[in-house]
Design a binder for these strands. Sequence first.
DNA 1: GTAGGGTTAG
Length: 707
Amino acid sequence: MLKAQRKVYVPFRHAQFLLRPNAVSPSSPLDLIKLLKLSADTKTVKVGKTIHSHLIVTSQATENNIIEVNSLINFYAKVNQVSIAHNLFDRMPDRNVVSWSALMTGYLLNGFSLKVIRLLKDMISEGNVSPNEYIFAIAISSCCDRGRVEEGRQCHGLLLKTGFSFHNYVRNALVSMYSKCSIVQDAMGVWNEVPVNDIVAYNSILSRLVENGYLREGLEVLRSMVSESVKWDKVTFVNAFSLCASLKDLRLGLHVHGKMLTSDVECDAYVSSAIITMYGKCGKSLMARGVFDGLQSRNVVLWTAVMASYFQNGCFEEALNLFSKMEQENVKSNEFTYAVLLNACAGLSARRNGSLLHGHSEKSGFKHHVMVGNALINMYAKSGDIEAAKKVFSDMMHRDIITWNAMICGFSHHGLGKKALLVFQDMLAAEEHPNYVTFTGVLSACGHLGLVQEGFYYLHHLMKQFGVQPGLEHYTCIVSLLSKTGQLNEARNFMRTAPVKWDVVAWRTLLNACHVHQNYGLGRWVAEFVLEMDPNDVGTYTLLSNIYAKEKRWDGVVKVRKLMRDKKIKKEPGVSWIEIGNVTHIFTSEDNKHPDYGQTYQKVKELLAMIKPLGYTPDIGAVLHDVEDEQKEYYLSYHSEKLAIAYGLLKLPSEASILVIKNLRICDDCHSAVRLISKVTNRVIVVRDANRFHHFQDGRCSCLDYW
DNA sequence: GTAGGGTTAG
C-alpha cells in the first residue's frame, strides 16, 4: 500500500532556472541537494531529473558524492522510480546508513514490504554498516500489512537486543505496526513502556485506537494528553472528532469543537470534514450542514461528508439534492461520493435514480472501483432488481468482504436462500474470511430454506472456526429458523438458553411465527410480553388483533382497539408506490387522490374476478368484525399494494416485471391475491414490504408463503 | 541527505 506523502509548498521560482537550457548554475552542491529534496517531496520529476543530469556532468569523486547519490536515491524512491534508485545504490562504491534507509523507504512507499526486510537482512549480513533508528523504523513500518506481523515481531526482538527500542522513532513505528495489525494489546504495551510527549506518537496511537474501535482506550489517551499538557495539533483534533463520532457523543464533540475554535489550529479540509462527520454521526445533520455552509472552499471530501451526514440521518433526498449543487460548482465526484449517493438511492428504493448514477459513475471512470461496485449491488438489491445486482457482482474485477456480504445479504433479503448459500461457498473458495455480517446473511438464508441442522452447524462450528463471536442478530436468525419450521417450543426454549439479551425484534419474530403457524395461545402470550417491552409497538397490536380475529374473539379485537385508542397509537396507513418512467406513483389505502384512481380501481376489480375461479377468497376475517361482508371485501380490495400493482399492469408493457414498494408488511389477503395475479397475468411481480422482498411468479412467491 | 500521525462508505 502506498503511503501518503507529506505535502510541501513548492517555491518553484527557485527551481525554474534549472529547467532553462544553458542555465548558468549559481548553485553550490549543497543548494542542489536541497533542491533535490524539494523535488522529491513535491514529486516534481522533471526538476529532479535535470539536477541528476547536472550532477553527472559536474560531480567529481569527492566526499560529497555519497550525499549526492543518497539524495538521488531518495528522489527516485519518492517519485515511484525505485528501480532507478536501486541501480544507483548498486553502483555505489561506498554506502552509508542513509543510502540503505533511502532505498528501503523507496520500497516501503511502493508497497514492496518483503523487499525492505530482505534489504535489512543484507545489511546485517554485509556488516559494514550498522542499522540505526531510521532503518528499524522503516523495517517495522513495512510489517504493517496484515500477515507481516511475524517479521514485525522478529524486528521487535532484534531491537530489544540492540537497545534501539527506546528510540522515539522506533517506538512510534512499533505502536503503529501493532495497532495497524489490530494487535492493540501489544501496541498499548509498547506505548506504556516509556512515557512520551511526542505529538506524533500520541496522534498515531489515538488514530489506531479509534480506527479499531477501542474507544474507551482512545478516550484515555486523549485524557492523558490533556493531563500532560501536550498541545493538540490539527491531527489531534481530527482524531478527537472521529473519536466523538464513533462514540456518538455530541456533548464531547461540542466540547472539542469549542476547544478547537479557541486554539490557534488552522481549520483545514481534514479538520472540517472530521467536524462535519462528527455532527452527522451524532445525529445532527443540520449542524453538519451549518459547518459546511460556513466554509470558504469545498472539495469533494467535504461535499461527500455532508451528503453522508444527511444519508446517515435518513435524509436521502437532501443527500441526492446536494449532488446537482456539487456538479454546478464543478466539483467532481469520487468513489466515496458515488457510494453515498447510491446508498441514498437504496434508502429510497429509487432504482431509476440509482441506475442513472450507475451510468454516471461509469462515464466518470469508476467502473472498476470496488467501493462503487459494492454500493451498486446494495442499491439494486434494495430497490428490487436482484438480477441487476447479480450482474454488477459478476462483472466486478476485484471484490472485498463487503462485496461478498452485499451479494449474500441481497439474495437472502429477497428470500433466495439457495443463491445466497452458493455465493457463500464461492466466497470461501476465494479464501475471503467471512465476518459478523456475512453470517447474518448466511443464517437468514438457512432460515428461508428451513435448514435447521445447517443453521446450528454454522452457529456453533463455522463461526468459531472463523473467530466470529455470535451476536443478537445471529441468535435471532436461529429463532426465525426454528419458528419457520414450526418448532415454536424449540424456538422458545432456545430463547431461554441462548446467552443474549433479546430485543423486541427477536420476540416479534416468534410472535409472527405463532401467527403464521396458528399457535394463537403462545402468540397472545408473546404479544403481551412484547407490549410490556414496548407499549407503542404498532405491529404487535396489529398482530394481536389479527390473532383475536382469527380466533373470532371479537371482544379481544375490541380490547386491542381500545388499548390503542387509549395510548393514542394510530395504525400507520398503508402506502405503496411504483416507479413508471421517471414518475413515482403513490397509492394509499385511505384516499383516492391518484388521478387514474377510477381506472385503477376498476382494474383491481377485474383482477379479483379473474382469480376467484382459481380459489381466491377474500380473507374477510382479518377485517373489522362489525362491518358487512360486502363492505369487508371492498376494504380489502382497497389495499394500496393491490392498487399499485393494478396500475403497473395498466401502464407497463406486457413483458416488464412489476416492482411495488410498501411501507408496511404485506397482508395475508394481498399475498394470496398477488400470487394468483402473477399467474393469470403471466407477470413477474416483486413487492418489497417493510421486512423483505416477495418475488411472485406463476402463482408462487419466493417466501413460500412464510414471512 | 534518511520517518512517523489526519478527511468522505459499508
